[in-house]
Design a protein around this nucleic acid. Structure first.
Lengths: 205, 205, 205, 205
DNA sequence: TATGAATGAGTTTTCATTCAT
DNA sequence: GATGAATGAAAACTCATTCAT
């Protein structure tokens, strides 16, 4: 299910390029002031073009938010896929996956923050579309875990994946408390240790 | 440390009462449309007074947001304190505490959602003030856990408390996925089981 | 021709007293912020009573301005009359009169400033009423001059009185320039010297 | 020393042109109702553009007042300079200068009135900037007088210039009394006569 | 395609005035 | 007579969106 945004521009490549510029500028702007406080003029400026040009590539201000959220999810997802080795499904692979995921969440803290705070400002249908991508990411995690710990029940698997998922996001989202107490490495190691305890216990049941 | 909001009304009791009305109305409004999409006129109406009266009790629209966030935290905190039995510190007490906390988060889903989405719209100092209350809640959780499992390291204690804390919030915040797969009871039980595994392992170390 | 302001209070003495308080407070307020920038709440506060009470003694905000302008003129006029000795009409008396008038304008700079800046904000009829008082003051000056220099034509008399009159007001109104170059004494002496030249010349014609 | 007003318009020429339109409309509006009673919508309308457009060329309502005061002073000053012949410094030139200045004050009565009433509504720094222009005008007068009557002391020169200056302004400001008794010609002639008496006396000292 | 000036509906905020206590 | 809470009309100002160039 795609959710394309109308544009009066014909050249598809140009659209792609401009929207990328737009998205980059908008994220850094939304980081600072959030979607609602950012004006379309500021968005255009941050993207490097005029207000008139902005409206050649979107129809409403809300479209910018959609574009941004969509792009962030795409990037997170792409990087997760590139990093998670599904072929290899040892327990070591899980460790690597979690480490890579947490590292990714550290790299993309600001983007994730924007996502958390502004997603609800999207219209319901756009929200659902974007959250679909999150589900795919969750499934990616689930698969890695299941490969290493096949004896988990479906609910255990689902819950544990969810927990890891949000623990990664929280590293950035709750940085004001977590990053004062832990380095990324400490956080990663300790969370993984706790995870292993849970999994280990369950694996031998 | 208090953060009072100026009012031109002299009767302190009236201020208290009206602000409570205001806060009640505003929460239910923000649930629907969020802070930014709600107009001051709508806020006044939702609280049951005229726009003029609204501005007798606040100075800026932002003040409403502060009032709301502050009140939510206060309520959550008060209910947590009333529910967590610090006297009794058996492991059963921890179970009760976690169950009560998750129940509370279920009851106050909408409020927590509002908090998550709008907190960043507050000025920095108000944000810090409000987040201070969150820290106190975290400490409450920490204390209960520590009483039952005194051998945990400081970092383990901190991380585990954080995990429980956000797992409670996520129950409401990520309802679109969790509440489709779990009932509150299932979610609570399974999370507590996982928690016990972690704690049990560590307790006997 | 009187221009009374309605009041719901019966006790005439109380009205008089309260309006005096009001007028005092208002002048000092208008000095700072001008009539338009001063709110009725501030006016009430400056006068030492509540907004409700304020409206027992006036009907509209504009009434305050009228009261103030009226009171200032009354005071200026009363002090001029007390100071100008009409009985004695030597040329020395003129010197005394001018000196006293300039001193008076120095004492009441702020009041005169308020008058200059806000009089035009009054409705036409109130303006006319108040300006009537100014004419009486001018006539006072005219009479003193005429007594000493009876050979002046009517127009000369009128113009010279006007000039003295505004030179007095300017001392306060244009203080930003005059009071940097002159002391009050210097200003008075030099203006009077110039005046004498004019009068002397004309007296012997 | 300039005091520029921010605008979101890029075309400098357009800014100049629009602000001129704005200033023209605003003066005629302020003449009628004064600055405070004029709404921004009325100002926009008087200038011939929409409220949105108005705010493309100014930041605050106050900016309009500054624009207006500044423009009036500039016009008065330009016309004074064009009319006062500094080359030629006979006593006849002084007569011409005074006549021209009084004529100018007659032409611009309304503008001068606006200036008198609204200048104090400007922020202090803008006031000082504008009053700087008034000083330059005073110096212009001083120079003309000094050229014809070089033996005057500095204080005499300063005071006499000031007197002429305000006599011109008062012609418009106190029209309710002066213009009932004098024609402009009579006023000019008589004031000049009085002036000459003073100067003549002093010149031969 | 790109630009940016123009627009006006909609928003926040103020404040003179009223009126129940 | 005094008080001050309540009111809402009206004000300043913003900003998404359009459209002529």
């Amino acid at each position: 299910m795609v959710k394309p945004i109308d544009s009066s521009i014909k050249d598809e490549n140009l659209i792609k390029q401009r929207r990328e510029e737009l998205q980059k500028g908008a994220v850094s702007l939304f980081k600072q002031k959030g979607f609602h406080r950012a004006t379309t003029r500021e968005i255009a400026k941050a993207a490097g073009f005029s207000i008139g040009t902005l409206y050649e590539y979107i129809r409403k201000k809300e479209d910018v938010l959609f574009l941004v959220c969509d792009a962030i999810y795409d990037e997170v997802k792409a990087r997760m896929e590139s990093v998670i080795n599904i072929q290899e499904s040892t327990r070591e692979a899980l460790h690597e996956a979690v480490k890579s995921y947490f590292q990714l969440m550290d790299d993309m803290q600001d983007e994730v923050l924007v996502l958390y705070q502004e997603l609800k400002a999207l219209p319901k249908d756009a929200q659902e579309y974007v959250l679909g991508k999150e589900k795919e990411m969750l499934q990616l995690l689930e698969r890695v875990i299941q490969d290493s710990y096949p004896s988990l029940t479906e609910k255990e698997l689902s819950l544990i994946s969810n927990n890891i998922f949000i623990q990664g996001q929280m590293w950035g989202f709750r940085r004001w408390i977590l990053q004062k107490e832990f380095t990324l490495e400490e956080y990663t190691d300790l969370q993984f240790e706790l995870l292993q305890t849970q999994l280990g216990k369950r694996a031998i049941q």
